[in-house]
Amino acid sequence: MPAKIKKRSDDSYLLSVAVGYNDKGRQIVKTKTIRAASQREAEREYTLFAAEVQKGTVAYTGKYKLADFAKTWYKDYCLKNLAPKTQRSYRNHTKNRIIPALGHIDMVKLRPQHIIKFIEELRKPGLRLDGKTGTLSDQSVMYCFRVLSSMLQDAVQWQIISNNPCGRVKPPTIKHHKYNLPSEADIRKMLVYLTDEPIKYRMIILLALDSGLRLGEIMALRWDDIDFKTSILKVEKSNQVLGGKGIFTKAPKNQSSVRSLALSSSVMDLLRKYSVWQKKQKLILANEWIDEGWIFTKWNGKAMYPTTPSQWFSKFLKRKQLPHMPFHALRHLSATLLISLGIPLKNVSSRLGHADIRTTANIYGEALQSVDRQAADQLDQYFRKTINK
C-alpha cells in the first residue's frame, strides 16, 4: 500500500486512501494531490479527503482498463439484470466492438474525443457481425453507443469514474426506417386471400393487424390473457428464442408495454372459432398434446417458435404474388390505419405500448401529416359553406 501522505515538493503532497480490492485482488486506492504549507496541514487535508472517500463522493482514480471493467460489468450487472437475448447482444457488442476499440484505455482517462472517434470507426466497412458486406446500420451504431453509455453510467454509479463521457457526446443520428406499406388494394387482396389459409395463421395475421402487438407479444399469449366477455386482451409478457436456450418468456420491452387493449368483434369471433379448432386438435392428439395454455402452438401444444409466423407470412405473400413486407410491418400497418381513421395519437401510442408518445409521432409522421391535411381540407369546406351562406 502506498504511503498515506507523500511529500512531492516543498508544498505539494499526494494523499492516498485505500477502499478495498478490485476483481483481480488488487487494492483500490483513491488519490488526491494537494497544496499544503506544512505536514500538519497535509494531515488535516488527508482527514477531510478520507472522510469524502468513506462517504462515497470520490471516484476511483487508479488504473483500471476499460476491458477489465467491461468483464466485471457483464458479470455483475448484465448476467443478473438483463434478459438472455439482451445479455448475448451486450456481450457480442462489448467483445467485438467496444473492447477492441477502447479496451486499452484507463477508465479515468476516457474522454469524449475517444467516444467520437469510436463512433466514426463504427461507420466504416467491415464491422458487421453477420458476415454481410457494407457498413453498420444507423440503428446498430446507436445500439453500440447505448451499450457503452450504459456501461459507463454504471461505472459512475459504482464510483469508478466521476462522469460518463458519453453524456458529453452528441449521440449518433438515426434515420427512421420507412416501411413501404401495401396499397389499399393489396391490403384488401391480402385479407381476402387469408380466408382460404389455415385458421392458425389467419388468426395470427388478423390479430397482429387488429392489435398492433409485437410478434413476441403475440407468441406469449395464453388463453387466460383474453376476456371473452369484454373483448379485452392483456399483454404482460413476450416470447423469444435464443440458440442454445430455445424458447423463453420474458417481461415486455418496457413498462408501458404491459397494457390492456380492446379487440374488434370480427377478431373475437375468429378467436372463438380458433379456440374450438384447437380443442378438436387436443382431442385428436389425446396424450400427445401438451397443454400449457398457449394460444399459438406447435402441433403438440408446445409454444410456437417466434420465428415461425414470419417465415409463413413471407411465403404466403410470395405465393399470392403480393408485395413483400416483414411481419413487423403489420404492426406499422395497424398504427397507420388507426391514424388514418382519426384515432387520437395518444390512444394509438398506448395501444402500441410505446413509452413515449414522441416515438409514435416520429415513426408515423407521414400518416399524421396526411390526417392533418384532411383536417385542413374539412375546415376549408366548412369555411366555404359558411361564407357562401
Rank of each mutant, 00 (worst) to 15 (best):
V235C: 04
E236M: 05
E236K: 08
S238C: 02
N239G: 08
Q240Y: 00
V241I: 00
L242I: 00
L242N: 00
L242P: 02
G243A: 12
G244A: 05
I247L: 03
F248I: 02
F248Q: 05
A251F: 05
A251R: 09
K253L: 05
K253W: 02
K253I: 01
K253M: 01
Q255L: 12
S256Y: 04
S256E: 11
V258M: 08
S260N: 10
S264T: 09
S264N: 08
S264R: 08
S265E: 14
S266A: 11
S266M: 08
V267I: 13
M268T: 05
M268L: 12
M268F: 02
D269F: 08
D269K: 15
L270C: 04
L270A: 09
L270F: 01
R272L: 13
K273A: 11
K273V: 04
Y274N: 07
S275T: 06
S275R: 15
V276Q: 14
V276C: 09
V276M: 11
W277C: 10
Q278P: 04
Q278Y: 06
K279D: 13
Q281A: 13
I284W: 08
L285A: 14
L285V: 10
A286F: 04
A286H: 14
A286T: 11
A286R: 15
N287D: 15
E288Q: 15
E288H: 14
W289A: 09
I290V: 15
I290F: 13
I290Q: 15
D291K: 12
D291L: 11
D291G: 09
E292P: 08
G293S: 08
G293A: 07
W294Q: 07
F296Q: 08
K298M: 13
N300Y: 06
G301C: 05
G301K: 09
K302G: 10
A303V: 09
A303Q: 15
A303D: 03
A303I: 10
M304A: 09
M304G: 06
Y305Q: 12
P306D: 01
T308M: 02
T308R: 12
S310F: 00
S310E: 03
W312F: 08
F313I: 01
S314N: 14
K315M: 10
L317E: 10
K318M: 09
K318A: 13
K318R: 13
K318F: 07
R319F: 05
R319H: 08
L322Y: 03
L322G: 09
H324M: 04
H324D: 12
M325T: 00
M325Q: 11
M325F: 03
P326D: 06
P326L: 01
P326Y: 01
